[in-house]
Design a protein around this nucleic acid. Structure first.
Lengths: 139, 139
DNA sequence: TTCCATATTGTAAACATTATAATGTAGTAT
DNA sequence: ATACTACATTATAATGTTTACAATATGGAA
């Protein structure tokens, strides 16, 4: 699944954020590597190709994407923020053994807490943890 | 809601972790202040009463509690871990305006993702964000 | 009371993230 | 096309949270 530069420029323009080569490469990375990368993983991969890349730029860009609704932060682990370009409603499962993060579909509408009836809910996150099938089989 | 030292010593003994004054005070703090405190908030409160208290001890104790199943980590925000002595199944709502964290009851059994059918699920977290009623009324 | 495993402490280090100020660039207006 | 302006990028330094480590103190069993 590749993403053309033209398509990205359109997406950025629609969301009101400026296009740049770096920003496009970061967004492409998120869209191609759907592995819920950390900012540092993105930096480490892209700096080989863009030697002048700065960590701050990665953080700035990711924040801009989140603000613009183009990506979500996944805080399933307490010591690092991960980023996900899939903004459709879905949950995340983290395997405590191999560390992989799996997506799964969730009907968030089945969660309608009475305590929040009059609250304005902007974001719903569902995080599960345990052992994935592959790691269970390896024992 | 107060918690006697005797009751706490029993709880610790049942879970196989050693009792100590510091540890009991940290657990009491979590059980009385059900406000999903950060490690630093707990340290800041207790150090007035236990001047020799060390941050490391707070972290160690909290980790021990989580390991023993006496507390849960709430990672609703990406830059800080919060701790919750309420280990019953419930979700967390964070108000983006006032920052308060609300509990709400969730029927987690209504979430049965097919993709995870053969996975072992050990922990389920539901995090919502938005604006709470109080903050909505203040506008 | 003695002893050992473990808890506590202080310091320093690791780690992720943010602040700042100078420089570079995209995109609009001229 | 050119110039201009707002914004993106960069390097460095600082912040904030959490962990590593080694010395000391303590809980609980023998």
């Amino acid at each position: 699944m590749d993403v053309s530069a033209d398509a990205l420029m359109d997406i950025f323009k629609n969301r009101g954020i400026r296009s740049s080569y770096t920003r496009m490469r970061i967004m492409q990375y998120l869209m191609v590597n759907r592995n819920h990368s950390t900012a540092d993983e993105i930096y480490g991969s892209l700096v080989e190709e863009i030697p002048t890349l700065s960590r701050t730029t990665v953080y700035n860009s990711l924040h801009a994407f989140v603000e613009a609704g183009l990506a979500r932060v996944v805080t399933i682990e307490d010591n690092e923020a991960r980023y996900d370009a899939d903004i459709s409603d879905h949950g995340h499962f983290k395997c405590d053994s191999c560390g992989r993060i799996y997506d799964f579909t969730v009907d968030v509408d089945c969660i309608q807490p009475k305590a929040l009836e009059k609250f304005r809910i902007n974001q719903r996150d569902v995080y599960f943890k345990g052992i994935c099938l592959g790691c269970l089989d390896n024992k």
